Amino acid sequence: MLRLSGITKSYGQRRVLEDVSLEVRRGELLGYVGGNGAGKTTSMRIVLGVTEPDSGSVTVDGEGVTAAHRARMGYMPEERGLYDTMRLHQQLAYFAELHGVDRRTAARSADYWLDRLGLHERRDNRLEDLSLGNQQRVQLAAALVHAPDVLVLDEPFSGLDPLAVDVMAEVLRDEAGRGVPVVFSSHQLDLVERLCDRVCVLKDGRVVAAGTVAELTGDERQQHLLRTTAPESAWAYLATDIDHRTDGTVVTLAPTARLDDLVDAVRAAGELHELRPWRPSLTDVYRDVAAPAAGAATPTGTSPTGTTSTEKEQAA
């Protein structure tokens, strides 16, 4: 198990991380999400020993992380850290040897990952000759070539086409299947929802939500999506909350109200086009917990997931 406990980090007067605690169990995929500047990359660098925290600790299976532990970690940075003019097979074998793998095993492992990621025919190509998507595959192979005990991946799906996304998702599932704790950051919340066992949401350096996808998106309230021509006044007395959306109206029934009561009230005043159970997506949850505070300035180009098209995540 990889565990961060009470991690705090500041750069000058700027507090980047504030008492961040999370754990990634063996065989588990953890999605690490948050806007630019939330603190994701900084906490990953702390795990890898690139950056030291001001306070808090990182452990693997209950032991303080040492250089030996970090040699058994696989790290995929958001900014590629490969050699542009080095040939793929040579490069991957070299990275494996840097992690202590003997030369023969390193060569075999490089072959395996090039084949697994659909790059075997390009084994003698230089990195600079590949598309950005294929370079991303090589970066993943470099993180995996030494059979790591822990995987830490920063935006591994960035720039990939749908087929490449499927390949990478399958690889991460397989790594978790062999007992590796896998944590990756992503702005693709639909992918995180589909792929991950648990999710941790970071905002302004603090954990604002964490749990399984079901725990974060589940809702014990009686929520239904309604599409009707009946006026809201005809049935609103049955609801404790009404949320108008582009695809219909989400109705939260009062504890004493029955679904049949809603159906009767709607049909008495208009046509009922659709009524089905509804629960929020991970994107809905993210918007609730990570949205800017009312009145806060929003950066130009902000996407629905809180990222911007112009800013890079610096020290985050």
Score class of each variant (00 low, 15 high):
residue 4 L to T: 04
residue 4 L to Y: 04
residue 7 I to G: 01
residue 9 K to W: 01
residue 18 E to W: 08
residue 21 S to W: 01
residue 26 R to P: 08
residue 26 R to Q: 15
residue 27 G to C: 12
residue 27 G to I: 02
residue 27 G to W: 05
residue 29 L to I: 13
residue 31 G to F: 08
residue 33 V to Y: 00
residue 35 G to W: 01
residue 36 N to G: 05
residue 38 A to G: 07
residue 39 G to Q: 05
residue 42 T to R: 01
residue 43 S to L: 09
residue 43 S to K: 00
residue 43 S to M: 12
residue 47 V to S: 06
residue 56 G to Y: 00
residue 57 S to F: 01
residue 58 V to E: 06
residue 60 V to E: 04
residue 65 V to I: 09
residue 68 A to V: 12
residue 71 A to C: 13
residue 71 A to Y: 01
residue 72 R to F: 13
residue 72 R to K: 11
residue 74 G to K: 05
residue 76 M to V: 14
residue 77 P to N: 08
residue 82 L to Q: 12
residue 83 Y to K: 05
residue 84 D to R: 15
residue 86 M to L: 10
residue 86 M to D: 02
residue 88 L to F: 13
residue 90 Q to S: 14
residue 90 Q to L: 04
residue 91 Q to D: 01
residue 95 F to Q: 11
residue 104 R to H: 05
residue 106 A to W: 10
residue 107 A to P: 06
residue 108 R to K: 06
residue 108 R to Q: 12
residue 113 W to E: 13
residue 117 L to P: 14
residue 118 G to C: 03
residue 121 E to Y: 00
residue 124 D to C: 03
residue 124 D to F: 10
residue 125 N to R: 00
residue 125 N to V: 02
residue 127 L to K: 14
residue 127 L to A: 08
residue 131 S to D: 11
residue 132 L to I: 08
residue 134 N to H: 12
residue 142 A to K: 08
residue 144 L to D: 12
residue 147 A to V: 06
residue 148 P to K: 07
residue 151 L to D: 06
residue 153 L to E: 09
residue 153 L to S: 02
residue 161 D to W: 06
residue 165 V to P: 05
residue 166 D to V: 00
residue 169 A to E: 06
residue 171 V to F: 06
residue 173 R to V: 15
residue 176 A to F: 14
residue 183 V to G: 04
residue 185 S to F: 08
residue 186 S to W: 07
residue 189 L to N: 03
residue 190 D to I: 00
residue 196 C to R: 04
residue 198 R to C: 07
residue 200 C to S: 04
residue 200 C to H: 01
residue 209 A to P: 00
residue 209 A to I: 10
residue 210 A to I: 05
residue 218 G to M: 04
residue 219 D to I: 02
residue 230 A to T: 06
residue 231 P to E: 02
residue 237 Y to H: 15
residue 237 Y to L: 05
residue 245 R to F: 06
residue 246 T to K: 13
residue 247 D to W: 04
residue 249 T to L: 03
residue 252 T to I: 03
residue 257 A to T: 11
residue 262 L to I: 04
residue 264 D to N: 13
residue 266 V to G: 00
residue 267 R to L: 12
residue 270 G to K: 10
residue 271 E to P: 08
residue 272 L to N: 09
residue 274 E to N: 00
residue 275 L to H: 11
residue 281 S to P: 03
residue 286 Y to A: 04
residue 287 R to A: 11
residue 289 V to E: 08
residue 294 A to T: 07
residue 294 A to R: 13
residue 298 T to R: 14
residue 298 T to M: 11
residue 300 T to V: 15
residue 300 T to H: 10
residue 302 T to S: 06
residue 304 P to D: 11
residue 305 T to H: 07
residue 308 T to N: 01
residue 310 T to R: 13
residue 312 K to V: 12
residue 314 Q to V: 15
